[in-house]
Design a protein around this nucleic acid. Structure first.
Lengths: 121, 121
DNA sequence: TTTATAAGGTTACTATTAGTAAGCTTGTTT
DNA sequence: AAACAAGCTTACTAATAGTAACCTTATAAA
């Protein structure tokens, strides 16, 4: 496989001094948080308003949608655009770093297409 | 993008009658559960014993390792091999379906390599 | 031969995270 | 003027995760 495995990878650190395997761990758990993947998926269409996301994503509550968007913002994956603070028009848009998540989302799609869902029972 | 978006995809169903977007949602959240990704990553090396996983994966508790392995088994991603029940040698191995998760893991690696961690602060 | 140690867990309890539901503010529509 | 919509926040309950101790059986060591 292409990934560097075992000692070489496990011991390696990124420029910020973190172990690469920790970065991997943090990243997969961040994008795997409840609703996170599906929010990113919907934002891959382009910028969207809060109510657009909340109506497209069946079942999500306003509370968690807010929390996830703040999370994404805080980690530089999404930017919040509010041209005029007087007008309640807020748009959320993926940053370049956020848009690059598409390959991951794509890989999950391919897997689902081929293998079906994890929860097919 | 290659993914079928919006109505066409959102309304499509798999052979078990589930909506494709639900399968995607379930799958990403399943593999994003805490420790799940890193467990799968370590199993991509080949079959491993319980204590090998628990010592390679820094910080995981026996309780959650057990729980995650049962989860993976229940969803057909891992098989548990115990040749002789009298001997306490238990090995966990990815099924073909489990091995195909490699592309997803790989995509996350590529993203981390390029963009750094989600939690870099 | 008792004693200790390791594998592969389970149990009980606490802390963190998610879900549900209601409410709030300000602008627009009727 | 009253009702409604966007984009949140708050309060409370339920589910999931973390911590730590314990259990069983088999081999290794003293």
């Amino acid at each position: 496989m292409l990934m560097k495995k075992n000692e070489e990878f496990v011991q390696s650190v990124n420029p910020k001094g973190q172990k690469s395997c920790d970065s991997f761990h943090n990243t997969i758990e961040f994008i795997g948080k409840r609703w996170m993947g599906i929010i990113i998926y919907h934002l891959l269409d382009g910028p969207k308003r809060f109510f657009e996301l909340s109506s497209e994503i069946e079942g999500i509550s306003d509370r968690l949608l807010t929390e996830r968007l703040r999370d994404l913002e805080a980690h530089g994956l999404v930017i919040k655009n509010q041209s005029d603070p007087k007008i309640r028009k807020v748009e959320y848009e993926l940053t370049p770093k956020g848009k690059e998540l598409e390959d991951i989302i794509q890989a999950i799609f391919e897997w689902v297409k081929k293998n079906g869902c994890c929860y097919e029972e």
